[in-house]
Computed example of a mutant assay.
Amino acid sequence: MFHDPGPRWMDAAQAAARGLRATTRGTRRAGHSVYVVLLKDVRRDDPWGLYVGQTSRDPDLRFDQHKAGYKASGAVRRFGVRLAPDLTAHLNPMRAWEALDLEAALADALRAAGVPWVEGGH
């Protein structure tokens, strides 16, 4: 049986994510999180990708909501495999305004690191 080793660019993605910092991490009213979902679409040349989002909810609950179709990203609903908490654990929790900023910054950093398919980050 063939075992898919996963994305070859994950080490570069982790290094890019570690380059970001949340200045409001752990401060009062730091109740928002940035999260990343590992995507897989076997129709693509490189089937692996990432979705970047931010939430005031627990990221696990938010992932379940995507999969159930509630305020869902179509990419996560159809292709979401699991959360990738190693990319964001050092950032969370943070204030709402910073979660919005870091959502976009993380998506840009992942693209710059060579992740071929990045969704979200808006």
Rank of each mutant, 00 (worst) to 15 (best):
R29F: 10
R29W: 05
A30W: 09
A30P: 11
G31Q: 02
H32I: 05
S33A: 12
S33N: 14
Y35T: 06
V37E: 06
L39I: 10
D41Q: 08
D41V: 00
V42Q: 08
V42N: 14
R44A: 09
D45A: 14
G49A: 03
G49C: 10
G49R: 09
L50W: 09
L50F: 09
L50I: 15
Y51T: 03
Y51W: 01
Y51N: 07
G53R: 08
T55E: 12
S56A: 15
S56T: 15
R57M: 02
R57S: 13
D58M: 05
D58C: 10
P59H: 07
P59T: 01
P59Q: 03
D60N: 13
L61I: 15
L61K: 12
R62M: 09
R62C: 13
F63V: 02
F63A: 02
D64H: 12
Q65R: 12
H66W: 05
H66F: 11
K67L: 07
A68Q: 12
A68L: 10
G69C: 02
G69A: 03
K71Q: 15
K71H: 14
A72T: 15
S73D: 11
A75R: 13
V76E: 00
R77K: 14
R78Q: 06
G80H: 04
G80D: 03
V81T: 06
R82K: 12
R82V: 07
L83D: 01
L83G: 03
A84S: 07
D86G: 14
D86T: 14
L87K: 05
L87W: 01
L87Y: 12
T88V: 08
H90N: 07
H90S: 04
H90G: 10
L91W: 12
L91V: 13
P93L: 00
M94Q: 03
M94C: 06
R95M: 10
A99K: 01
L100Q: 13
D101L: 06
D101M: 01
D101W: 02
